[in-house]
């Protein structure tokens, strides 16, 4: 089992160990029902974290993701209330709208060369400000019934003791996004370019990779996924709260970092990030199920993040020290 020695393997083992403890302490934890609930309530986080993985791999950061998602959900919410629901139109509008917002980030970062955190802090404020202005802070409800029905669909039912268990349609979006992004990173030219730029920008440039184009692509893709996340989120909650994503960027970044991506760039993977999301989800779910008082939840989640990341860095340093020794001997 070579895979278990990788970074992802390590996170996987932690996840399994934690799940085993929780399964013993709470009889409901391992039920299919609980798994599906966890999946459904975390698809949006997972989709955005996959986009953020790319951003972090190229050594960037995007703190405007929550604001992009909020703005796109306001956009499609307003649209549907005014013009009704049509799956292809609304879906296209979500991803195109998100991609435009992401491209603005990407353009400012790659062409004007402002640091990513400065740009996205600015656009975080602008995007969420527009969402607030357009709605006046008011929720959008009365979404078309056809859209609500779409969000309630299930992919297929699994017969279980005591009724069938259905997989919500939102999960399909996550599966598609994860598969496509994973394939792109591993097998497409752009994927390799992303790792090259993140690993060592100078060598990448010498190899003829245009860093600015890669950056523009990655931030646009992040926007694209934020837009798709807005669509999925709205289909679950059937109302649009313009402030639903305040502070959400921190959770997204936490999931990616917990999933083993190096915050300085160069490494990270879709699998790792999905495991990071799963770990966050399981901790939060497990704490409630095992009756831990809510005042402790945030502290424990924070401890997990700090421990996991420190452990990862200590391991990496050890490896590097070994590597240096070999160099000297040669």
């Amino acid at each position: 089992m070579k895979w278990l020695n990788t970074k992802e393997g390590g996170i996987f083992l932690i996840l399994i160990a934690l799940s085993a403890v929780l399964a013993v302490r709470s009889p409901v934890f391992l039920t299919m029902e609980n798994m599906i609930d966890m999946l459904k309530t975390n698809v949006v986080l997972a989709m955005m974290a996959i986009g953020m993985t790319l951003v972090i791999v190229i050594g960037g950061i995007d703190v405007s993701v929550g604001a992009m998602t909020a703005l796109v959900s306001v956009l499609i919410g307003k649209w549907m209330v005014a013009f009704g629901y049509d799956l292809s139109v609304v879906l296209l509008m979500s991803v195109a709208g998100g991609a435009v917002l992401g491209a603005i980030n990407g353009w400012l970062i790659s062409k004007i060369r402002v640091h990513a955190i400065v740009v996205t802090l600015g656009t975080l404020s602008i995007y969420s400000g527009i969402a607030m202005y357009v709605t006046g802070g008011i929720w959008i409800n009365n979404l078309p019934q056809a859209f609500i029905d779409f969000g309630r669909q299930n992919l297929f039912g699994i017969p279980m003791s005591g009724g069938t268990l259905a997989i919500p349609i939102q999960v399909l979006f996550l599966v598609l996004v994860a598969a496509a992004t994973g394939y792109m990173l591993k097998h497409l030219r752009i994927g390799r370019m992303i790792y090259a730029v993140g690993g060592n920008p100078l060598s990448a440039e010498r190899a003829g990779i245009r860093q600015d184009r890669v950056q523009l692509f990655v931030y646009t893709y992040m926007g694209f996924l934020s837009g798709l996340a807005a669509f999925v989120h709205t289909s679950i909650y059937r109302q649009v709260d313009p402030s639903a994503f305040t502070g959400f960027e921190l959770q997204v970044i936490a999931a990616v970092v917990l999933g083993g991506a190096n915050i300085l760039g160069g490494s990270g993977s879709v699998t790792g990030t999905l495991l990071g999301v799963a770990l966050l989800a399981v901790i939060s779910n497990g704490l409630t199920l095992t009756h831990v008082p809510s005042f402790w939840h945030k502290v424990i989640i924070g401890l997990f993040i700090v421990t996991a990341v420190s452990f990862d860095i200590i391991q990496r340093k050890r490896r590097e020290r070994r590597l240096a020794k070999i160099d000297v001997l040669q």
């Binding site: 409901v28 609980n34 609930d37 989120h233 109302q239 639903a244 939060s284 409630t288 008082p293 809510s294």
Partner: peptide, 24 residues
């Protein structure tokens, strides 16, 4: 049954937490 459960003023968090307490 337990301490007050925070939802960060967000519908999705209240939804998620309530799903959990219904099972717990």
């Amino acid at each position: 049954v337990t301490e007050r459960i925070p939802s960060d003023e967000k519908q999705q968090v209240a939804y998620q937490k309530t799903l959990e307490i219904l099972k717990a």
